[in-house]
Design a protein around this nucleic acid. Structure first.
Lengths: 130, 130
DNA sequence: GAGCCGTTTGACGTTAACGTCAAGGCGTGG
DNA sequence: CCACGCCTTGACGTTAACGTCAAACGGCTC
């Protein structure tokens, strides 16, 4: 239980996060350039806090789900819309996202079912013909 | 119930499928160039059968799930691996895919939960402050 | 203070997944 | 026969999401 647990800390260098999540520093800078991250600066050097790290985790999860950085950016804005957003406008956007995600969930569950069926059929063939 | 039901037929032109699924003919040709489709030919003209159409449906579902065409290609090979594959090799690949898809399912469910939570919190704020 | 490490910006290269012409073949309706 | 529509291949353009240098700066350490 030690492969990646630098979690209680509050300050991170760019290389820390890159190493922890197995991505390049270039990628992180790219996310900042696209407005998905906005770390503080000490001089020119980027300093990441837990909040930035949390956002990065969301970014990477979004990528695993196949979203574009543009989509992920919108998605992130739902998270820190604590104040700046109109409440009803926020819930509208959230509902929109939810509908899309639930459709994706259907696709995913269908795919999983199909693969399980394929696996089962293969098992049966194995039983017949060794 | 008529928006897109040309389903009992067996022969399709490229434009038929393009229109039915809201994609370009260029995309379909591109999928063929990548080996995901292999329609018959009459002269130079592509002729798609139900089997090709079914594969296209799988391709588009894969895209909605965020997969690359390369991934989708591997995925398709699991479907028509009726004969040409070794059974244990097939089930191994299927298991691999399943594990990945189930991980994605986790990500997706987490995301949906979070958005529902955000929505709920927004609703509460609305209750407080109109 | 010379080297080394980690960092920065900037610029150019790369891959995937198409879009967008261009130029031409095939059938058919007037 | 000729235009029209649909099809073909081929070539080049485009966008996203980085990778890959290059040149330079800041801090440590010996």
């Amino acid at each position: 239980m030690n492969h990646a647990a630098p979690d209680n800390r509050d300050l991170f260098a760019i290389a820390d996060l890159a190493k922890e999540f197995g991505i390049s520093t270039r990628a992180i800078r790219f996310y900042e350039a696209k407005g998905l991250l906005s770390p503080e600066r000490v001089g020119a050097t980027r300093i990441f806090r837990r909040r930035d790290r949390a956002r990065l985790i969301l970014i990477l999860r979004g990528k695993r789900l196949g979203f574009s950085l543009r989509d992920i950016s919108d998605y992130l804005s739902l998270y820190d819309a604590d104040r700046n957003q109109q409440v009803h406008l926020l819930t509208a956007k959230v509902d929109e996202r939810l509908a899309s995600l639930e459709a994706q969930l259907q696709d995913l569950q269908t795919t999983i079912k199909e693969l399980r069926e394929i696996r089962k059929l293969a098992g049966e063939r194995l039983g017949k013909a060794g």
